[in-house]
Simulated assay, not measured.
Amino acid sequence: MPAEGSYQASTYNLELDAEIQRLKAQVVLSWEKEARTLKWFGLADGMNVLEAGSGPGFFTEQLLKLLPNSLLTAVEIDPVLHEKALGYLQDKGGDRVNRIQASIADTGLEDNTFDFAIARLLFVHLPDPVAAAREIFRILKPSGKLVIIDSDADLFWLTNPPWSVEIVREKFKQVMASRGGNLCVGRNLCRILKEAKFGNVDLEAVVSHSDIIGIQAFEPLLDSGPILQMVKQGLISESEIESYLIYRDEFAAAGDRSMMSFWLMACGKKLNRYLP
């Protein structure tokens, strides 16, 4: 089964191992605040939970710890990440986690099955995010909730000293759009939920700061592998990324540096008035 949308782990980075570590760092970076916000949105132990776009299993592992009495269904379309998760979670979830390789737009799961669904850093890559949200709506129970955790390229990070990334960011947007993704999906999350017939839509932001968690937590996210892979594939020229790499090296060498990152968390509820 091919990967869906703009992301495929085996071709996204120069090295697959580096990509897996980058994905792990994304989870570690803000898990505590995401968990706090998920509980504030209504996630509770004992619920039947869907994780959409579950990747190599790092976020799944955290959910299993947070919800020791819950059943989890982890849906991932990328065959490489699906296999990674099978290995990573084999001694962590027991029979509480069901791993499925499928498209989130066509899961094959039964109607009205889940109490809560989480889609983390998935919708940014989907060519039809509303269709995916509608599929999740279908398999949620009445009053079930979907939380989408995602980013927006224009509100991704702030650095001190400033790191100029505008040229590469715009090129990255173009490349991702050509593959079916949208790096600015964060600003559309509420609209996506409403178009999929979710009600009680709300939005929160999760902010991580190196002065609190340490600059080391951010370092895997500075990996230039994804951009260099685009150069290798002829999607971005070396001259276009030259200044980006210079600024990255200057930032990495700065003695007094800091960094902030931002995730957006949008929540919608399956209201009875939208049921057939």
Rank of each mutant, 00 (worst) to 15 (best):
L122G: 02
E135M: 07
S151A: 14
R187G: 01
A177T: 13
A131E: 05
P129D: 02
K145Q: 15
L109M: 12
V175R: 09
A205M: 15
L109W: 14
C184M: 10
S178V: 11
A177F: 14
A153G: 10
P162Q: 13
K197W: 11
L158T: 11
D211M: 13
I167R: 10
G144I: 14
D115S: 13
E204I: 11
I213A: 01
A102G: 08
R179G: 02
K141H: 10
G108C: 03
V130N: 02
K171N: 15
F116N: 03
L203P: 00
I215N: 06
G180V: 08
P127Y: 06
N112H: 13
S178I: 07
L155H: 15
R179Y: 07
I212D: 13
I167G: 08
P127T: 02
D111N: 12
I149F: 13
A177E: 10
V168S: 04
S178L: 04
I192H: 07
A105F: 09
P161Y: 15
R134L: 07
W157I: 05
F116R: 04
S208I: 09
D128E: 13
E170C: 00
M176P: 01
P142N: 08
R120V: 06
I148F: 03
F156A: 11
F114G: 00
I213F: 02
G181W: 07
V165R: 13
A117R: 01
C184L: 03
A117N: 06
T113I: 14
A131G: 08
I139P: 04
R138S: 09
I118W: 12
W157Q: 12
V206D: 05
D154T: 05
F114P: 01
G180K: 03
G199C: 05
T159A: 15
